[in-house]
Amino acid sequence: MTNTAFALSGAANAAPPLVAALEMRANILDLTQQAEDAVLRPDDPGGWSHAQRAAMAARIARLNDDTALADHYGGAVDAAPMADPGWQGEDKRTRAALRFMDAMARDPRDMEAGDIARLLQAGIDDADIVRLSELNAFLAYQLRLVAGLRLLTGAL
């Protein structure tokens, strides 16, 4: 199984102490990859297709200035306009979802009850709100894990 955090941080060529540390936490890196599969490519995608999820993941990576992670999620802007943070969506549901995702990626501290109310008003149900939130929250974790590992490997 290819491990995203490993691949994007240069950890494969790390110095021996870091290699030993990563081996000690191999179970965590495996679970991290399983989580990527669960949020990006779930068996039951609900209201968000695998392609939309990949595009949103690329968008979140771009909003956090992580080009390598954005590229990992494909989301070539030509094929998936949603992957471009400048694109706001054309229908009410998409616009509401992207506004929510952008806020959670960049300014989660300022989010409030109204952010959820707007999704419900746009016709996005409880399960699809949780699915969006898990995708976004997982990306927040993964991009910080990658950023931290890059600091340790010196692959800046």
Binding site: M104, I116, V130, Y141
Partner: peptide, 10 residues
């Protein structure tokens, strides 16, 4: 970063 977004937003 993951847990905070779920708890604080949901």
């Amino acid at each position: 970063g993951w847990a905070n977004r779920l708890m604080h937003v949901l």
